[in-house]
Design a binder for these strands. Structure first.
Lengths: 168, 168
DNA sequence: TCAAAGTTTCAATAATTAGTGAAAGTTATT
DNA sequence: AATAACTTTCACTAATTATTGAAACTTTGA
């Protein structure tokens, strides 16, 4: 396989994975493009490489910056903005996990806590089932939460090590 | 908060989380409905509870069965099919992880393996960056893969224990 | 074998989400 | 302060994804 074909395939695959995880395809593709770019790219270059409009490129790059996956750079003597991606995959993984925790898990835990104080008759099976389900999901969510906190603090090898150690 | 209001909120929250993770909202809501149902429900009851069409209810229930989250049940003397959800959250989490691994991570690893054999000139920075990025993502993906395999085999407390132990 | 009860399919439609591009806004330079 | 280079916004349109509902299909029992 030739390099350009491979780059293309990588961008497609990353886009597909992204869309399966609720991240818009273009955003994942721009991220992929920057991941395999050996130097920072301008908005123009991103537009060109992925055949997308200026508006789309701009918003997508901004979103990637919000997610902490991409940064702006200025080259001395030039007005144009250049964009480059964090390339350390462990940092990327932590960053994504952190953002999603903030946007999704934290609000979910808040709702679950509200729901677990609902009062009712312990003899009512509808109440009992509700209570049990919510309590159990709440416990799981809190464990995930703690697991993520560990991940954020951890070095990569340390993290995986702690998972694998026990399960040879 | 009253039980019915709480049930409603739970269904909405679960639907929202689902859609943020690339799972169609209705599917997540039907799952939520069955999770807090104290007895198996018929297609009619699902349609009624969530105001969705027969076709939608049918397809969604089938999808949930494909995901291994819901099962059919027949009551003796009745022709109707009843549906109920697995309620053990650890089993649910494993099941979801397993399905997504099969559908997404495994194909991704396959692509990454294909891409990592691309040949090129080590002095070409475009080639070097591509190679490095793909290799690193590949390593991460394989660690996630191993981590999931551990999870599938593990008991819940054992799994979390192994993560928390190291990070007090 | 027929018809009633129930289930599934799928073309048509609706709802949602993503993308465009031109206009407005901003910033740096002369 | 005027202009040119560049960035951002947002109303409109396109593309995608989800849902409906009626027709086709299947199963059961009389």
């Amino acid at each position: 396989m030739e390099l350009n074909e491979a780059r293309q395939k990588f961008i497609e695959a990353w886009g597909k994975i992204g869309s399966e995880w609720g991240i818009n395809r273009t955003m994942a593709q721009v991220h992929a493009l920057l991941l395999i770019a050996h130097e920072p790219l301008t908005t123009e270059q991103v537009m060109e490489a992925l055949s997308i409009s200026r508006g789309n490129a701009n918003m997508t790059l901004r979103d990637l910056i919000d997610w902490g996956l991409v940064e702006k750079q200025h080259k001395p003597g030039e007005r144009k903005e250049y964009f480059f991606a964090e390339k350390d995959t462990w940092k990327i993984a932590k960053q994504v996990a952190q953002e999603r925790k903030k946007r999704e898990l934290d609000p979910m835990i808040k709702v679950l806590n509200e729901l677990s104080v609902v009062k009712g008759d312990d003899k009512d099976p509808a109440y009992k089932t509700f209570k049990t389900s919510v309590t159990n999901i709440n416990k799981l969510a809190k464990n995930v939460n703690k697991g993520l906190e560990s991940m954020f603090k951890a070095e990569e090898s340390w993290f995986w090590g702690s998972i694998f150690k026990v399960f040879k």
